[in-house]
């Protein structure tokens, strides 16, 4: 089973590359946000996988939860930027 988890994690890492492309290429900031958010959701899964790989998943669950929360807060904060500052003149 460990091998399956290991390769799943590697696969997730590969998926992250795909999302990262969106985060880096843009073209707008909002696209980057989508990319980062997508990376975040994959990371949550990956954290649990790592916990299972270490056979200590109980220790990793807390991190995972905190991670999900703070990712959410960060994304929310970034999107709230546009709530108050509409578009502005520069690149969005």
């Amino acid at each position: 089973m460990d091998n399956i988890f290991l390769y799943s994690s590697l696969y997730l890492a590969f998926l992250m590359v795909l999302s990262l492309y969106r985060a880096i290429a843009g073209p707008t900031v909002l696209d980057r946000m989508i990319g980062v958010n997508a990376i975040g959701s994959k990371t949550t899964v990956m954290l649990i996988l790592i916990g299972l790989l270490y056979h200590r998943v109980d220790m990793f669950v807390d991190i995972c939860l905190a991670y999900a929360m703070l990712n959410f807060i960060a994304v929310l904060a970034a999107s709230r930027y546009f709530h108050k500052r509409k578009g502005l003149s520069d690149e969005i």
């Binding site: 990262l20 985060a23 900031v29 980057r32 960060a74």
Partner: peptide
Amino acid sequence: VKDLLGAAILFGAYSFL
């Protein structure tokens, strides 16, 4: 990246990674 908000977001991604 030529945009500070983008930099902030990517920096967040960096930290998460």
